[in-house]
Design a protein around this nucleic acid. Structure first.
Lengths: 333, 333
DNA sequence: AGTTCCGATCGAACCGGTTCGACGAAGACA
DNA sequence: TGTCTTCGTCGAACCGGTTCGATCGGAACT
C-alpha cells in the first residue's frame, strides 16, 4: 500500500503538508492541494488505520458486544445488530462484533488494547457482569437493556412497565378477567434479564387493580419444548386471553393454534410484544407492543457517537425508556 | 492505559526486553521474566493494537462482509455469522462486520487502510461485484458461495447440483412424476446467486431423465406475498410433491398447509433445503437437505487463518463443495 | 592468565501517520 | 527602504509497539 510518504514525494511536498491537505486543519494553496489530490488518486492512497490510531488515539471503530444465549431466540438479536451496523457507518464508524461467551473478559481485552473508541452492550441484564468492567474502561459506552445501576452510561430500552400496563389495560377494557401470561425462559430471570421481570411484576400489579387473575409461567425457548408447552397450556384452562412475552413462543403460536382449531380472537384473545419485522417474518397476526429494536439500536449508536466525538460530554447521561406503541392487529376481543 | 515503557520501567528493564518476554522470541532469564510478569499484572498492561499493527503489519482482525438483501431471508444469515465469529476467536482473531450496501467500495476501504488481515465474503454471487476488488487487495480471502471464477481464493459452498440430484432421485424413487419447485426470489437469479440456478438447472435436467414434470417458479421473499403465492400454488395443481428451495417460503409453509387442511405427506409430499437450526426455529417437519451453514462458516475461517498465518501458502487454493446430507423427516411418500 | 563463546539485555531504528513550532517569501505599512 | 504580518510549507518529535545488531559479564577452554 502506498504511504503518505509516497504521496508526498509524488506531489513534491512534505508528509505534513499531505496530512494537512487531508485533514483540512491548515490552509493549503489550491495548486498544492490539486497536486496532492492527484497523487492520492494515482496511488490509491488510504491512510493506514493502525498508524492513524496510534497517532490520534482514535480508531473509528465501535465494539458491539452481543451474547447469544441458548435460552433466547436468536433471530430476534439480528434486528438489533443490523441497524446498529448501518447507523455506525453513517457516522463513519466500523463495527467490531464480539460474541465471546465470557463477556467481561472480552470487554477488558478489546478495551485495554484500544481497538475501539466506544462500546455498545446488547441485552444488558439487571446485574450484568459486564458492568463492573464498563466502569473501569476508558471508552464511553451505551447499552440496550436496563441494568440496576445506570450511572455513567447511556441506556436505552423499551419501557416494559408501561408496556405491561398497556397490555393489561387493553385486556381489562375488553372484559378479560382470567389470563395466562407466558414469560421468558426461567434462565432469563435467573440471569436477571430485567425486561422479563419488569414486565411480569408490573402486569401482576396492574391486573390486581382490575381483579384480573393472571396465571404466569416461564416460557420455553426451544422447539420442540415450546410446542409441548403450548399444548399443555391449551389443554388446561388458559382463560380468555394469552399474553406472550417470549419470542420463541409467539413465533410458534400460529401453527399450534391452527392445528388445534383454536380461533383468534373468537376462542382466545392473544396479545404480545414483538417488532414489526419479526411479525412479518413469522407472519404473526397478533396485536402487539412494538418492540422497536431498530430505534433502540440507532439511539444507542447516536448517543455513543456523541460521547466519542466530545469526551467532555461525559456528564449528562441518558436513560431513555421508549414509550411503547401498540399495533392493533385485531387479535383481542 | 499502561504502555510497554511503563512496564519496562517498573521491572527495571528496557522496552525491548519486555517485548521479547511477551513474544518469547528470545530467551529471558527467569528472574527477569518474573519481574516483568509482575509489572504487567500490576499495571494491567495490554499491548496497544494500533501500535502493534503498525509494527508487525498484522491486525488479528478478520473482515466479514455480509450483504443483507431484501429478497433474502435474514434469519438465515445469522447462522453463518455466529459460527464464523466463534471460530475466528478460537484462532485468536476478532471480527469486523461490514454490512455496507456498496460491498466493493467497503472492501476497498477496509483493505486499503489495513484494518484486517483477511476477509470473508458471505453469499457470493456468480459474478459478484466484490470479486474484481478481491483480486487487487493484499489480504487473503475466503468465501461462502460459488462464483464463476474461483482462482486465488478458498471457496466453500454446499454442492447444490448434487443436492438437486438427491432431491429429484428421492422423489422419483417414490413415484412422483409431477412436481412443483419453488426457487429463490427472481432478484436472486438476476443478481446471479449461483445456488439458485445451479439447483434449478440440475433439478430440471435430472427430472427429465425420469420423465418427471417440473413446474418451477420464482418464490416470494416477504410476507404477506409468500402466503399469497403459496395459496395460489395450492389452488392450482401443485402436483404430488413440493420442492422448496427458499427459506421464506418453507418457513411459512406449515401454517398455510394447516389452514387449508393439506396433510403432509398424505396429500402432498414436501422436501426442502435448510439447516437443522433453521428447522428447529421454525419447527419444520420436512425432509430436507442439511445446508450446514455452521460447517461452511468454520471451513471458511479455517482456510483463511491458514493463509494469514503463512502467506506463502497462497498457491493451493481450495474449492470445496460440501457433499449434501439428507435428513429424512418423513414428509415424502 | 588470556582468549573465545554464549546467554541475557540494551539501544536505536522503524512502522505510517499527526501535530507543533519554525521558517522563508510576499505583501502591507511606516 | 526597512520592519511587521500573514500565508504556506517544512522538519522534527511523537504515538507504542517490534526487531536487529551491539554490548557486557561470566563461564569454558587452552
Amino acid at each position: 500500500m502506498a504511504t503518505i510518504q509516497d504521496v508526498a514525494r509524488r506531489a513534491g511536498v512534505s508528509r505534513s503538508t499531505v496530512s494537512y491537505a487531508l485533514s483540512g486543519k491548515r490552509r493549503i494553496s489550491s495548486e498544492t492541494k490539486a497536486r496532492i489530490d492527484d497523487a492520492i488518486r494515482e496511488l490509491a492512497f488510504t491512510p493506514n488505520a493502525g498508524a492513524r490510531a496510534l497517532a490520534t488515539a482514535q480508531t473509528s471503530v465501535i465494539g458491539l458486544f452481543v451474547h447469544f444465549f441458548d435460552d433466547e431466540f436468536s433471530p430476534a438479536m439480528l434486528q438489533y445488530v443490523l441497524p446498529i451496523s448501518d447507523a455506525a457507518r453513517e457516522y463513519g464508524y466500523d463495527v467490531l462484533m464480539i460474541t465471546d461467551t465470557d463477556g467481561p473478559k472480552a470487554l477488558k481485552r478489546v478495551s485495554n488494547s484500544d481497538m475501539v473508541d466506544g462500546v455498545i452492550l446488547l441485552n444488558v441484564a439487571h446485574e450484568d457482569p459486564r458492568l463492573p468492567v464498563m466502569r473501569t474502561i476508558r471508552q464511553p459506552g451505551s447499552m440496550v437493556g436496563l441494568p440496576k445501576s445506570t450511572d455513567g452510561f447511556d441506556v436505552f430500552d423499551l419501557d416494559f412497565e408501561q408496556s405491561a400496563r398497556m397490555v393489561i389495560d387493553h385486556l381489562a377494557e375488553r372484559g378479560h378477567r382470567d389470563v395466562t401470561l407466558v414469560t421468558g425462559h426461567k434462565a432469563v430471570f435467573e440471569r436477571g434479564g430485567a425486561y422479563a421481570w419488569r414486565f411480569l411484576d408490573t402486569a401482576k400489579e396492574r391486573a390486581a387493580r382490575y381483579g384480573m387473575r393472571i396465571h404466569a409461567l416461564y416460557g420455553q425457548a426451544q422447539q420442540p419444548a415450546v410446542n409441548r408447552q403450548l399444548a399443555e397450556i391449551l389443554d388446561g384452562h388458559p382463560g380468555t386471553a394469552l399474553v406472550v412475552h417470549n419470542d420463541a413462543v409467539i413465533a410458534a403460536l400460529p401453527s399450534v393454534l391452527h392445528s388445534r382449531g383454536v380461533r383468534v380472537p373468537d376462542d382466545l384473545s392473544v396479545i404480545s410484544i414483538f417488532s414489526e419485522d419479526f411479525g412479518r417474518i413469522f407472519n404473526l397476526p397478533y396485536t402487539a407492543i412494538e418492540s422497536s429494536p431498530d430505534r433502540l439500536g440507532r439511539l444507542a449508536v447516536r448517543a455513543l457517537v456523541q460521547h466519542m466525538r466530545d469526551p467532555a460530554s461525559a456528564g449528562p447521561h441518558r436513560v431513555e425508556l421508549l414509550a411503547p406503541r401498540m399495533v392493533d392487529r385485531g387479535s383481542t376481543r
